[in-house]
């Protein structure tokens, strides 16, 4: 699977708790018992991850469907 995700505009977003700007880094996501690493925006300090809308209805939905059909 292509782990590069579409360009995500994270301009201006900061982590509410740490007040640090979001960066894009490798995150382990899981669904239906399968887990894998993808690049997602999030707070590098506390590890809270953001799933932007473009992902939720794009790539992430595709992957969910693939995993459901496994």
């Amino acid at each position: 699977m292509d782990r590069k995700l579409p360009d995500m505009d994270i301009t201006g977003w900061v982590c509410q708790k740490c007040q640090s700007p979001l960066t894009i880094y490798q995150v382990r996501v899981t669904y239906m018992g399968a887990s894998f690493e993808v690049e997602l925006p999030g707070c590098a300090q506390c590890g809270t991850t953001m799933i932007p809308k473009i992902l939720a209805f794009g790539k992430m939905l595709d992957v969910e469907k693939i995993l459901e059909d496994k």
Binding site: V27, G47, K53, E64
Partner: peptide, 13 residues
């Protein structure tokens, strides 16, 4: 302003 959802689990939610 907007609302969406997904099933995949990412850390921190």
């Amino acid at each position: 302003k907007d609302a969406w959802c997904h099933r995949m689990v990412a850390p921190g939610t």
